[in-house]
């Protein structure tokens, strides 16, 4: 449904998006994850034909975003990041206006308006001016607008920003439901958000894709080297060579804690049993032995923290 090939967008010398490629199949929900300023919105704006790319190509539902802009736009329901709307219009008027722009007849508009108002829980505010609505309601009006013409492709830029926790849950559920009839590409800078809603995640930083895959795949990749936390009652000078001697251990760091020593070690695979056996063999009292399972969050934070690191961490 969406095909992006080495897409770049430069603002002067700033490379907002730098040669990214990905493709999204029909009926997929894909999360576009990255820190603020990673190039998410820029990419989505290219896909929705709001501004052109500097290089590369993109197609949506088989139409080229540069040469067949109007056909592309007819296939897309787009929720922009800032949810811009006319404050003086009532919700109903606004949705009618948007329906007209999509070439819907009055009957079509009436029916689908009833549908989206119910789906996006707008029943109470449908006759209120948009300017009076809270951020959460505006967000839902934006979502209703994107769904109005039942487009095959939905592009949602940070759909849950500004919502309260229960609304966030409801919105996630709604997006999940939508995937049955639509292809969804949503962006977010919050990992649990994408993890909860998306079948596939594309992580982007500084305009480049640094990782992509299903949440499980990414988690596996991250868990490749796991960390152990061990607390032993012994001198650091004795502990260090002993632990280093274990197979697969790549890194050992110790901090003294009274007569105890707290050790953090990195190793390939699960080394808990070996560490316990070692402690028992040497007669060292052991009061903590814990495996730190790397989460996607750690991975993501790492990416956000440093670009250099991000470029070396990813995907072999």
């Amino acid at each position: 449904m969406i095909d992006v090939k080495s897409l770049s967008k430069h603002y002067g010398t700033h490379h907002a998006v730098d040669g990214i490629s990905f493709s999204i199949g029909e009926g997929e929900i894909v999360g576009f994850l990255g820190p603020n300023g990673a190039g998410k919105t820029t990419t989505l704006r290219v896909l929705t034909c709001f501004h052109p790319a500097t290089a590369g190509s993109a197609t949506v539902a088989g139409y080229d975003v540069f040469t067949q802009s109007e056909q592309v736009r007819a296939q897309i329901g787009y929720l922009p990041e800032s949810v811009p709307m006319y404050p003086e219009m009532r919700v109903r008027e606004y949705l009618h206006f948007r329906g007209k722009l999509r070439g819907m007849t009055r009957e079509q508009r009436e029916t689908s308006l009833r549908g989206v108002v119910e789906r996006c829980w707008l029943g109470d505010v449908v006759d209120r001016p948009i300017g009076q609505l809270s951020k959460g309601f505006r967000q839902r009006v934006g979502l209703a607008d994107a769904l109005l013409h039942n487009p095959p492709v939905l592009i949602l830029d940070e759909p849950t920003v500004g919502l309260d926790p229960s609304q966030i849950r409801e919105t996630r559920r709604l997006i999940g439901e939508l995937a049955q009839q639509h292809t969804v590409l949503l962006s977010s800078h919050i990992l649990p958000e994408v993890e909860a809603t998306c079948q596939r995640i594309i992580i982007i930083n500084r305009g480049r894709i640094v990782a992509s895959g299903t949440p499980e795949e990414l988690r596996e990749r991250v868990a490749g080297t796991s960390g152990l936390i061990v607390e032993l009652k012994a001198a650091w000078t004795e502990i260090e060579p002993a632990l280093r001697g274990l197979s697969g251990v790549t890194e050992v760091r110790g901090t003294p804690d009274g007569s105890w020593t707290r050790v953090a070690l990195r190793a390939a695979g699960d080394q808990r049993e070996a560490v316990a056996a070692l402690a028992a063999g040497r007669g060292w009292p052991l009061r903590e032995l814990r495996r730190e399972i790397a989460t996607l969050e750690d991975f993501f934070v790492k990416i956000v923290a440093g670009a250099h690191e991000a470029q070396t961490v990813p995907v072999e």
Binding site: R45, T48, C49, F50, E70, Q71, R73, A74, I76, Y78, P80, S82, P84, M85, Y86, R98, L101, R102, G103, D145
Partner: peptide, 14 residues
């Protein structure tokens, strides 16, 4: 100014 141009120009409007 208000950014509504984004919603407008991403609809099929010439």
């Amino acid at each position: 100014r208000s950014g509504t141009i984004e919603a407008l120009m991403t609809a099929p409007v010439s």
